[in-house]
């Protein structure tokens, strides 16, 4: 992958190209994010819960759209064939895709998570929900990394959508699972965020898995000798 960095200007161009293509969607996500954080900030149980569900939906939609639009559709629309005619190697292309997708997802993801945390600490919503919110957000990020990896390694719409469905189903299971954990459940209504060994362990595991999936994807991409 390091050899790919020799072609930095081209990689930058590819990232900017993806940014331009997604600019409209990104603007819509930002608009949605502001509205949702505003809704959650009203701090009534109805608005906070509705906002939280909409926030999770938005995070999933952002990830799903960017992975499909920027990776899978490039092959379907024959854009990938055009890319092959450019002075870029498969590694350049892979690195650009990974960089563009991560930037396009991580920026709104981070803003939404920070906004949500800000709402929680500044409203009567109990701060005890912070570990739950952070863990669910990290799980959504991990899900995104999984289907981005699938899209980047296979360029297959079928496989990518399958992983998306699986991770989304697992999200429900994950939320039920951690809410039932005594370490999480008993501290949900606490006035302060209670990070204990269980929640910290889960956070660490989630972070390691996110990094692991990304490193593995980059490694497998490096081994690729052709675009297809």
């Amino acid at each position: 992958m390091l050899t790919a960095l020799n072609n930095t200007p081209m990689i930058k161009r590819l990232i900017v190209k993806d940014w331009q293509l997604m600019k409209k969607s990104l603007a819509a996500y930002m608009l949605g994010g502001v509205v949702i954080i505003g809704m959650m900030g009203m701090a009534t149980p109805l608005m906070f819960n509705t906002g939280a569900i909409m926030m999770i939906t938005l995070m999933i939609v952002i990830g799903a759209r960017s992975a499909i639009e920027l990776v899978v559709n490039e092959k379907k629309d024959q854009t990938l064939a055009f890319m092959m005619s450019l002075p870029v190697t498969a590694q350049d292309y892979a690195l650009a895709k990974l960089g563009a997708n991560l930037a396009l997802y991580l920026v709104p993801w981070l803003l939404l998570v920070l906004g949500m945390l800000l709402v929680i600490v500044s409203t009567p919503v109990t701060n005890g929900v912070i570990p739950l919110v952070v863990l669910v957000s990290v799980f959504i990020l991990l899900s995104y990394c999984c289907y981005l990896a699938t899209a980047l390694l296979s360029y297959s719409e079928g496989y990518t959508i399958t992983v998306m469905i699986m991770t989304n189903l697992l999200l429900n299971g994950f939320i039920f699972w951690i809410i039932r954990m005594p370490a999480v459940h008993t501290t949900l209504e606490a006035p302060t965020a209670s990070w204990n060994s269980t929640t910290l362990g889960l956070l660490l595991a989630g972070t390691v898995l996110v990094v692991g999936v990304l490193v593995l994807t980059a490694y497998l991409q490096k081994r690729k000798t052709s675009f297809l």
């Binding site: 502001v34 509205v35 954080i37 505003g38 809704m39 959650m40 900030g41 009203m42 906004g115 800000l118 709402v119 600490v121 500044s122 409203t123």
Partner: peptide
Amino acid sequence: EWIFPALWAL
């Protein structure tokens, strides 16, 4: 004045 965007104000 709260530390989140107030929709009515926006």
